[in-house]
Write a protein that binds this DNA or RNA. Structure first.
Lengths: 131, 131
DNA sequence: CAGTATCCGCGACGATACTG
DNA sequence: CAGTATCGTCGCGGATACTG
């Protein structure tokens, strides 16, 4: 099924540099995006919970990526006006739909890591076709 | 199913900063990776064919990403010693296995672009929980 | 054709400090 | 707790030119 982009009337095509799908792919394909969306699949999490769960992320990148995901309509941000403040992040319906492919990518990586490490160590010479 | 990383004996976990799966995720989650792997799903392509198909990629990034995918064992590079040279890129078995989740991501993006653009324009105010 | 090689700007990203 | 704000760097990535 081919989708037509409503705003432009052109077909959706990530191979086209000008197609808005390309920019969305850039967002989705970020490493922090994968880890955040996958984290929220099991339920909402607070800012600090995300921060601790995703090792190596800086506050800046976590906040930045969350804002981006919010703007794209993947993530909800709920502020509880308590003191101290409590902010819950969760997935929208659209976000849950995205979480399928995203989690598949994480699972694939964890499942095939040994194949990959083996390929890296057993670096073969260039294959040369015999004419 | 939980995978154990052979080289370290630790469980595979992309949330751990030191786990090799994290680095692999970084490679896989690159935008050019998605477009290249998805392109090769239908069969081998020559360098120039990839270059023309993936709008906006520079020679440098195309070559660099191809080398990375080759080192990780996802892509084969076959040089035909003709003149002019002919270099064919294809997927390994591991690469074809990766192409499933990757293509799902591309398809999801193209299918949901209108939902996303709608979410972007209809930027709602912060949801505030009523205490 | 299928790449290297080189230069370089600029934004991604991390570290640190501060705040409602 | 959940962020901003600010600064500094580092390497991503584009542009251009050259080669087997």
């Amino acid at each position: 099924m081919k989708t037509t982009v409503a705003s432009s009337g052109l077909p959706a095509d990530v191979y086209s540099a000008k197609c808005p799908t390309r920019q969305v792919l850039d967002h989705i394909a970020g490493k922090w995006t994968v880890l955040i969306v996958d984290s929220l699949l099991d339920g909402t999490l607070r800012y600090t919970e995300l921060f601790r769960r995703i090792e190596g992320v800086s506050q800046k990148m976590l906040t930045q990526t969350l804002r981006l995901l919010e703007a794209d309509g993947f993530v909800t941000r709920t502020v509880h006006p308590t003191v101290p403040p409590r902010v819950e992040y969760g997935l929208t319906e659209l976000g849950r739909s995205l979480a399928g492919p995203i989690s598949a990518l994480r699972e694939w990586t964890e499942a095939h890591i040994n194949d990959i490490e083996q390929a890296r160590s057993a670096r073969p010479a260039d294959q040369r076709a015999t004419p």
